[in-house]
């Protein structure tokens, strides 16, 4: 299944969840937010939110700035 994660096209298994994608990118305990197709997915919903073909998933964190 083709999806775009943080701007890069990736192949992921069917029934991949938002939580799976976050775990694949970072082991940070906090300070992470996720948007799927520009809509914020609350942390409480990560484990139940399934990714579908061609979804754009952005996983963001706080960085130095401002």
């Amino acid at each position: 299944m083709n999806v775009i994660i943080n701007g890069e096209r990736r192949d992921v298994a069917p029934r991949t969840t938002v939580a799976d994608i976050v775990r694949s990118l970072t082991d940070a305990a906090g300070g992470i937010a996720v948007a799927v197709n520009d809509h914020v997915v609350p942390k409480a919903d990560w484990a139940e939110t399934l990714i579908t073909e061609n979804d754009r998933v952005d996983v963001l964190t706080a960085v130095q700035g401002g």
């Binding site: 943080n6 701007g7 990118l25 970072t26 940070a28 963001l60 964190t61 700035g65």
Partner: peptide
């Protein structure tokens, strides 16, 4: 203190979030 929000990138351990926390 201000922080920006950007895509997670692989890098060294430790984060500005930890420093503030």
């Amino acid at each position: 203190t201000t922080v920006a929000l950007r895509r997670v990138a692989p890098g060294p351990a430790g984060s500005v979030w930890d420093v503030l926390h």
